[in-house]
Amino acid sequence: MAINRSSDHESDENTRLYHPYQNYQVPIKSQYLYKLPTSPEFLFTEESLKQRRSWGENLTFYTGTGYLAGSVAGASAGIFSGIKSFENGDTTKLKINRILNSSGQAGRTWGNRVGIVGLIYAGIESGVVAVTDKDDVWTSVVAGLGTGAVFRAARGVRSAAVAGAFGGIAAGAVVAGKQVFKRYAHI
């Protein structure tokens, strides 16, 4: 399908698939200005399954989401642990410093940890898709399994196996949950 589409796209400019950034360099060529695409982005669902993010976008998306989520969660947990560590007789400056120190440290730690998990996951998923040329639940499960195993590899085989199983189950659950959500909750 992919090969077919690319040749179609090359030959027929009027019925190309919708792509918002196509031909949109800053000096917009006037010949492209009003040649708006007439076909919908995806006609069949198989098409939308087939066309996925490129590996670079995949990498930045998972890593960025992981890092941001991890550091926000860590920083907000650190605020509470900083407040808990107040002692009697602390001045306001000391209190602010306690909060800043603990939230900064927790945010940094968790951001790095979850960001690395996202990086490994994106790499393995792109690799699996490139090898098997399929993208379904099992891709995510394999990627989650590999991510857990790599992330805990230094703690020994047993720990890596447990973490891999956990990662595979978690990734599969997320994908399955997303499909259930899509089917039953219409947004």
């Binding site: 800053v26 990498l59 930045t60 998306f61 890593t63 960025g64 989401t65 941001l68 996202g118 990086l119």
Partner: peptide, 29 residues
């Protein structure tokens, strides 16, 4: 000129993109 830059992502998404790209670059390098 006053055109928004279209070679990168539009603005709020750019933050996520830059965070992810910078983390990946820094971590791999």
């Amino acid at each position: 000129m006053g055109t928004p830059e279209s070679s990168r992502e539009p603005c709020p998404d750019r933050i996520l993109d830059d965070v992810g790209g910078a983390f990946a670059m820094g971590a791999v390098g």
